[in-house]
Amino acid sequence: MHRRSVFDQVFAVETAIALAVFVIVLGLLVFAVVRRRARAGLFVSRRREWKPVELCYAGALAAVAAGLVIYTALANREQGRENDRPVDLRVEVSAFQWCWEFAHPDPAGGPEDEPVTARATCRGDDLPTLVVPTGRNIRLELDSRDVIHSFWVPELRYKLDAFPGHRNEFTVRFDREGRWIGHCAEFCGHRHHTMDFWVRAVSPEEYDAWLLDAQTGQDIPAETA
């Protein structure tokens, strides 16, 4: 949820800047509308340019732009640092028309074990659930079997596209337990709007117990956990 805190900070800064600019422009506009209405005796400027002021202003804009570029690039780097953490466990996320599968490939750490895979139909309430332990670095490996999809968990403030024939991955750590909705963000055809899923973060102990249960049952229906 590191990404979320970086997002919150940058979003707050840019919203504040945007609001300030908007209020200034709106204020000047209202001032012009109220005070510059055509009437007898109103002085009307014939000035076509005012070069020193315009150039200073352009310079100031460039400085603001440079500051903003540096600030946001650093934020982007800071957000991306989550990807460099040592990975505790991997989950393969498969997107397809029109649902998701979440495969936990090495449940007990041994390669001989079958992966535990969460499946569903994405019809009605039958949504797949991505179960993850809190406090661990989870590598999500995104792949698509057909068209481009996009893995979006609004609560995480993050999304990443799932391509066919190209693997995208990112690392995330959940700080608290909870259950959140996820959507497909990239339009992918007829049932794009039903391509939702749940993310459920549980304590590591609960997660291990869930994995053990799931291994005996293999396929997990939507809401067993």
Partner: peptide
């Protein structure tokens, strides 16, 4: 992101010109 944010410079100049035009004018 760099090139996109750089766009605020020409855009800001256009707003400066539009606001400057009405602030010194007699509006109808």
């Amino acid at each position: 992101s760099l090139t996109s944010i750089a766009l605020l410079v020409p855009a800001g100049i256009e707003y400066f010109a539009m606001l400057g035009t009405i602030l010194g004018g007699a509006l109808v």
